[in-house]
Amino acid sequence: MNDLLALAANRIFDGEGWHDDAALLVRGDTVEGIVSRDRLPPGVELCDTAAEILAPGFVDLQVNGGGGVLLNDHPTVEGIETICRAHARFGTTALLPTLITDLPDVTAATIAAGIEAGKQNVPGFAGLHLEGPHLALTRKGAHDPQLIRAMTEADLAALVDARRELPTLLCTVAPESVTPQQVAALAAAGISVSLGHTDTSYATAIAYVDAGATLATHIFNAMSQLTNREPGLVGAALDDGRLFAGLIADGYHVDPASIGVAVRAKRGPGRIALVTDAMSTIGTTMTEFTLNGRTIYRKDGRLTLADGTLAGADLDMISAVRFMHERIGVELGEALRMASLYPAQAMGRADRLGTFARGAAADVVALSHKLNVAGVWIGGRKISPVS
């Protein structure tokens, strides 16, 4: 019996370039290759998706919640499953559930849940992102200032231990609360270190990149800005090719003009990766929820505290892709790379994610000509329903 499946659409984007009149070959949970439709292997099962585009599933580095669940409130395997399922509807096939600054026991429970989710191969789960508590009070954003603190050696040891059992661990930290030596130890353990929620100078940011930091968390937001004599973390993220930079592309967190400037200015090989910074509202009709005991209000595409402070985003990944392509004018292939290949590269998983190279995970999103999600496959299995 031939166990090959051929997925066909008008066009296939493989993570790098385009293929017309072709089919994506999938064997089990793995990509076998891309062939012309007139050269399908004998006996292969052909599935014509009737979609305009097949592309690698989206990869999201920063997802606080979805489907009515906030990870901080539900640090369980079930909570992780709900979040992953909610975002699959919008084309995200691999994500890092993200814990916002919280109490140590909540962090420990989240790590334990992430380890178990990895063991259970929860569809869409790619690891964890711990955003805090080792941040700067001056750039706290919506993080509870009473929970922000410096990293201890015990914190460091716990993170190193966690990485041994997690597929990916990303930590957002601020130079104000961690030392270069701690960053070096995290990086040596295989932990991805992102700089964020900080008022650091450009020179200090570069010193932390030298120590092992490889990302900047949601560029422009909750960080030192680019000015005439002090480039800040924004300047470091754009100027230093060793840094990837997450971007919340909803038109509220960053002005479209600033997004355009950043896209044109970013030095590689590190690129700008789209992140949703999504909260529990995604996939629901919720109008408010709580975070660390404070009410977050949902209105007109924004999530805010009572004082107007942005608190995460009411954003899914396909909406971010459309925004980059239609509003910012980014070429469609590049917008898709920003949602798949670049975040996969940022967490060191580009051999399996964000690509249709042979041997990659068979994570696929099918898109209509209007860039709506028409189908999703995770590990070669179709996720239903997607609407």
Rank of each mutant, 00 (worst) to 15 (best):
A157F: 01
I378Q: 15
I80R: 13
R164V: 10
T168N: 11
A150P: 03
M324V: 09
T138E: 15
T110N: 08
G260L: 09
S319R: 02
V106S: 01
T204I: 02
T200S: 14
S177F: 10
L96F: 05
K299G: 07
G235E: 13
V35G: 01
M151V: 02
T217P: 05
I282A: 08
R267A: 14
L5H: 02
Y208L: 11
V330Y: 01
L156M: 06
A236C: 08
A126K: 05
Q146D: 13
G270Y: 04
D210V: 00
A9K: 03
G359T: 10
H87A: 12
V263S: 00
L71Q: 04
D199P: 04
L46G: 10
H87Y: 09
I12G: 00
G329A: 10
V26R: 03
D199S: 14
G308M: 02
P41L: 11
A189G: 06
G124I: 13
T138M: 11
P97C: 12
P41M: 09
L353Q: 14
W377A: 05
D199M: 12
A335I: 14
L70E: 08
T198M: 08
P75K: 02
T107D: 00
G375P: 08
D161W: 01
A245W: 12
A8R: 01
L5D: 01
P385S: 12
Q146T: 10
L46Y: 03
T200P: 12
L24D: 04
G235F: 04
A346V: 14
R89T: 07
G283P: 01
F289P: 06
D21C: 00
A265L: 15
R381N: 11
A361K: 13
D240F: 13
G241M: 03
V263W: 04
A205F: 08
L4H: 03
D250K: 01
N292H: 09
W18T: 03
D73L: 15
H218W: 07
I206C: 12
V31T: 06
M151G: 00
F58S: 06
V209C: 09
A51E: 02
G260W: 12
L25C: 10
A185Q: 11
A237N: 09
P133S: 13
R229C: 05
E230K: 13
T92H: 07
V122C: 00
V261W: 04
A265F: 15
A154E: 15
A113H: 03
L103T: 12
T110S: 10
D277R: 06
G65N: 06
P75D: 10
F244H: 15
A236H: 02
G359L: 15
T152L: 14
K382E: 15
L54F: 00
F323N: 10
A313G: 03
A344T: 13
N72S: 11
L99T: 08
M347L: 14
F125K: 01
H369I: 11
D73H: 15
S201A: 01
A306H: 03
G246R: 09
D38S: 12
A360G: 06
K370N: 13
A222D: 02
